[in-house]
């Protein structure tokens, strides 16, 4: 249900771009206005989400402890898996953000031969997740050739590594293929593993289909249905200097507009969906706090100093009524 719904939403998005540009000739809307709205929504949305998160107090340290806590000097503590210092936290976060360390610990368990519970390693999710995120990152960096002039030094470097197989012209980029494979795996995983399928919602499938659409439209545009890349760069450079040139819009093929519209959808959808884990991972209290509960005093921010009403004050306030009611008081 969620699968089909998400699939058709992406198809409809493609059709919107197709009809909007081909039939309704809304080049200006799809090439200039929507990208601006999308990037603005993205930036404001992320800031809004982070600020809203930051209003929640974190009164107590709740890091997940995956190793020996620092205690007595002769007990070896686990500096990354149970960090007690800021440096340890930075190391833990870096491993988490760059290498998905906690996903690496992913394990599967199942009942075998009746009542025997067995545990096993399950690294495919970690591998596909890592492949997806890193290839996506490389692809974004590669796109800087359309957003910088002169082109930044790392772009040709990245392209030469990415295209080192020298297959075809333009050179085949490995990152595009890896992204497609990874996103396909992550989708099939949701379909074929019953437990995962049970908890999968439309909001899980939709980003996968959307990324699939973005990657495949990009690949089609690069290798099969060519668009004039110089015109594309004139458009992108115009966009980032707030001086877009509408003259180039007509000459760029429909596939570019589909690609762009799907990306705009992704950007605008980002802050309001699970994708915002990009910002959220940095604010996970189970990861970003040092486990120093027993070394430092952490004061609960929402009720300290605690407002107390002592008995003396209570009696001062109600003495007259207490006496009238015949209740014994300590001070006359």
């Amino acid at each position: 249900m969620g699968t089909l719904f998400s699939f058709f939403v992406v198809i409809i998005l493609v059709l919107i771009a197709w009809v909007g540009v081909k039939a309704a000739n809304l080049h200006f809307l799809f090439g200039i206005i929507i990208p601006y709205i999308a990037i603005l929504t993205f930036i404001v949305g992320i800031i809004y989400r982070v600020v809203r998160w930051s209003r929640s107090p974190v009164p107590f340290r709740i890091p997940t402890t995956c190793g020996q806590q620092k205690s007595l000097p002769w007990i070896k503590d686990s500096k990354l898996d149970n960090p007690s210092t800021t440096l340890g936290v930075i190391g833990r976060m870096a491993l988490e953000v760059l290498l998905f360390r906690s996903l690496f610990r992913n394990a599967k368990f199942e009942l075998r031969e009746g009542a025997k519970l067995v545990y096993g390693s399950a690294k495919w999710l970690w591998l596909a997740g890592l492949a997806l995120h890193w290839s996506f990152f490389v692809i974004i960096l590669r796109h800087f050739r359309l957003f910088t002039e002169p082109v930044l030094f790392f772009v040709p470097l990245l392209e030469s590594i990415d295209g080192f197989l020298q297959i075809g012209v333009p050179l085949l980029f490995v990152s595009g293929i890896v992204l497609l494979l990874a996103v396909t795996y992550l989708f099939l995983r949701r379909i074929f593993i019953p437990e995962v399928r049970y908890i999968s919602l439309a909001s899980d499938y939709f980003p996968l289909f959307l990324i699939f659409g973005i990657a495949s439209s990009g690949i089609l545009m690069r290798y099969f249905f060519k668009v004039p890349v110089v015109d594309v760069k004139v458009l992108t450079m115009g966009l980032i200097s707030f001086n877009p040139d509408p003259k180039v819009l007509e000459g760029i093929g429909i596939l570019f507009y589909i690609h762009l519209f799907l990306i705009c959808t992704l950007f605008a959808y980002f802050p309001f969906s699970k994708l915002v884990h990009m910002a959220g991972v940095f604010l996970s209290p189970t990861r970003n706090l040092a486990n120093n509960n027993r070394m430092k005093r952490h004061i609960n921010p929402w009720n300290y100093p605690v407002k107390v009403h002592t008995y003396e004050a209570y009696e001062d306030e109600f003495r007259k009524f207490m006496k009238d009611a015949g209740i014994p008081v300590e001070k006359e």
Partner: peptide, 15 residues
């Protein structure tokens, strides 16, 4: 806003 220093630094880096 709690930990406003870190939050603001993070948001500036993001922006």
């Amino acid at each position: 806003m709690y930990n406003s220093r870190n939050i603001i630094i993070g948001l500036i880096i993001f922006a």
